[in-house]
């Protein structure tokens, strides 16, 4: 029985890690309708910047956690202003392709700056201990990830549902002309949302780095995983992303436990099943076709 409990803790921890990584992508897509394929790259920049900060600040993880996401958010802002803002009239598909081209560019830029060696960020001292649950030692950091994931989810839900900003965002999603007519600067909304999306991607990078490490091509692996979470949850729904993250966490962890041969198979199998049964994802809205 203990082993089931232990695997459940693993599932939730892994699932919420996925949520932390994906929520930025989900937010940007949900509000702007732009699928940011450079999301993985922003995540990677976050991880690498925090690596540099920890190396130069005597392993200060907390400093990295403050600075790195901001740095990524600024990158994201620059991308929005230089690349995406002048191209909004090209349509969504073109913008998706643009961000994909960007992912290629960022791939080589980070390789040039940080090299291609495998790197890692040590756990912060205060979170490096272990806690015994279900007769097994768990790293405190894993449990911290659970807490961070829950707080982040709560915060995003609160902003989206309970604040004026959230109202504007939801309105912008359903009717752009109307919100413009009401005197809200939609351009500003876009920029801010992209900034926040970048911040969350960078935040995910810092949080995940001590667990997942840093290595070349990490962004594409992350991107694919994030896309799967996004699709299973239903496009543009933070709640859906949350449910999907947990579902994947549980399914994948228990698959690795019960039928490890299918580990590679299971995430995509799950996605195919969800899409066939519920073509709009678990909690997806009917998306209006463009």
């Amino acid at each position: 029985m203990d082993i089931i409990g232990a695997q459940l803790v693993n599932s939730i921890s892994y699932g919420l890690l996925l949520f932390v990584i994906t929520c930025g992508l989900s937010l940007v897509f949900g509000i702007l309708g732009v699928l940011n394929l450079a999301h993985g790259s922003l995540y990677m920049i976050g991880a690498y910047v925090s690596y540099s900060i920890t190396v130069h600040s005597g392993q200060n993880f907390w400093l990295a956690l403050i600075i790195a996401p901001l740095a990524v958010a600024v990158c994201s802002l620059i991308i929005e202003m230089i690349l995406l803002r002048p191209t909004y009239q090209l349509g969504h598909l073109s913008q998706v392709l643009l961000t994909f081209g960007l992912a290629y560019v960022i791939h080589d830029m980070t390789a040039a700056i940080w090299g291609s060696d495998v790197l890692s960020i040590p756990l912060p001292q205060s979170l490096s201990g272990t806690v015994t649950l279900f007769n097994q030692a768990f790293p405190v950091y894993r449990l911290a990830v659970i807490a961070i994931g829950l707080i982040l989810a709560g915060l995003l839900w609160f902003i989206q549902e309970k604040t004026r900003w959230g109202a504007i965002i939801r309105a912008g999603l359903s009717d752009k002309e109307m919100i413009c007519a009401l005197g809200v600067n939609i351009q500003l909304v876009f920029t801010v949302v992209f900034f926040i999306g970048g911040y969350l991607a960078g935040f995910g990078g810092v949080i995940a780095a001590p667990i997942l490490g840093l290595y070349p091509s990490m962004e594409f692996q992350t991107l694919i995983l994030a896309l799967v979470v996004l699709v299973i949850g239903g496009l543009g729904s933070i709640a859906g992303t949350f449910v999907a993250s947990l579902t994947i966490g549980i399914v994948e962890t228990f698959c690795r436990f019960l039928v490890p041969e299918l580990s590679l198979f299971v995430v995509f199998g799950l996605m195919a099943v969800v899409l066939i049964v519920k073509p709009n994802g678990l909690l997806g809205r009917q998306v209006v076709k463009h």
């Binding site: 203990d2 082993i3 693993n10 667990i211 997942l212 994948e252 228990f254 436990f257 041969e261």
Partner: peptide, 20 residues
Amino acid sequence: EVYPPLGNNDYSSYLTTIKN
């Protein structure tokens, strides 16, 4: 025996199995 995929990111589940 257990064979996690190449490039597997989280070993927690395998490690719990091995531990037991």
